[in-house]
């Protein structure tokens, strides 16, 4: 059987499959960034964290032959990057955006430096669950081969959505993100809360990186991320800092990213390269459509340096 047998149905199916496959790193990075931004800080360095996480996960998986140890190592590396960002930003007159850009370059550079020996070897992959086993059609099977990390990400977005309303930690993060003064009046130290929030955000971005190198595309190369970490930051704004919104937006971006390959697979030979740019064009369109010069951004944390 080949793609032509199910005809044009292959396109939505491939988009669905692509959405599930491509969206997972977006989900983790954007959930991490949502936590960080809800606490009133922006970490643009998540792109670097993502790449470094991908390298760490791959290297550790190659050496220990366990993808799960790789995943843990990536989370730990991401945590370190996040804590480093949070620690620098607590000093007065430090701009979190500038530090983020510096860490983005630093993380990528460091990953390339340590990652050179791991370009060739093959690491074990993270497991996937074949939800499509009931079908005989290989396209359906391929599309519904869902990685466990996607499921964890989906659950995590629900948990975070709940936790921002119903737990002390969630409320504290929101208080700190919205008003440093109010937080201090309650005896909270905004810097500590932001340090932890940035750390957790970094760890989640590291996990997103592990998914890249250990499942899809599933190998370590220097071009592994192509700006996904940065797009996830934009996605948080588009999702209005809502974890469920982050999940939906990540799916949307994943689907858009799968458009090009899907069209190619059903035999569209001209102009499909344009569709490879779909996620980027979508970012632009969404940002333009949802912004307004006369309205302020609804739901933005008050202490965020871009909205101040």
């Amino acid at each position: 059987m080949d793609a032509t047998e199910i005809g044009l149905w292959g396109v939505p199916l491939a988009i669905l499959g692509g959405a599930i496959r491509v969206s997972t790193p977006f989900i983790f990075v954007s959930l991490g960034e949502a936590i960080t931004e809800r606490s009133g800080r922006i970490n643009l360095g998540l792109e670097g964290t993502l790449v470094f996480g991908a390298m760490t996960a791959y290297a550790v998986a190659v050496m220990t032959n366990s993808p799960w140890l790789g995943l843990l190592a990536a989370a730990a590396a991401g945590l370190c990057f996040g804590l480093f960002h949070g620690w620098i930003c607590k000093f007065p007159k430090v701009n979190d955006i500038a530090i983020g850009i510096a860490l983005m370059l630093f993380g990528s550079g460091l990953a390339f430096f340590f990652g050179k020996p791991f370009i060739k070897p093959k690491a074990p992959n993270l497991p996937a669950i074949p939800f499509g086993a009931w079908s005989d059609i290989p396209q359906v099977q391929a599309a519904l081969d869902v990685n466990v990390l996607f499921l964890i990400g989906a659950a995590l977005s629900l948990v975070l959505w709940w936790a921002f309303r119903n737990t002390r930690a969630g409320l504290i993060v929101r208080v700190v993100g919205d008003s440093s003064d109010a937080a201090r009046a309650m005896g909270l130290n905004p810097n500590t809360v932001r340090l932890l929030a940035t750390g957790v955000g970094g760890a989640l971005a590291g996990i997103g990186g592990a998914y890249l190198s250990l499942y899809y595309p599933g190998s370590w190369t220097e071009r592994i991320s192509s700006g996904q970490g940065l797009m996830a930051v934009a996605l948080v704004i588009f999702a209005r800092w809502n974890p469920l919104g982050c999940f939906a937006a990540a799916l949307l971006f994943g689907g858009a990213g799968a458009l090009g390959p899907a069209l190619q697979s059903v035999g569209v030979t001209q102009g499909y390269y344009l569709f490879y740019a779909a996620p980027y064009i979508l970012t632009l369109i969404i940002m333009i459509a949802t912004s307004s010069p006369t309205r302020s951004l609804a739901g933005a944390p008050g202490e965020l340096s871009i909205t101040k």
Binding site: L171, I172, R174, V175, D178, M186
Partner: peptide
């Protein structure tokens, strides 16, 4: 000194 994006109830409980 209230937190603008929290509801009244959330403001009271968290303080």
């Amino acid at each position: 000194t209230l937190v603008p994006s929290l509801t009244g109830a959330e403001n009271l409980v968290i303080s």
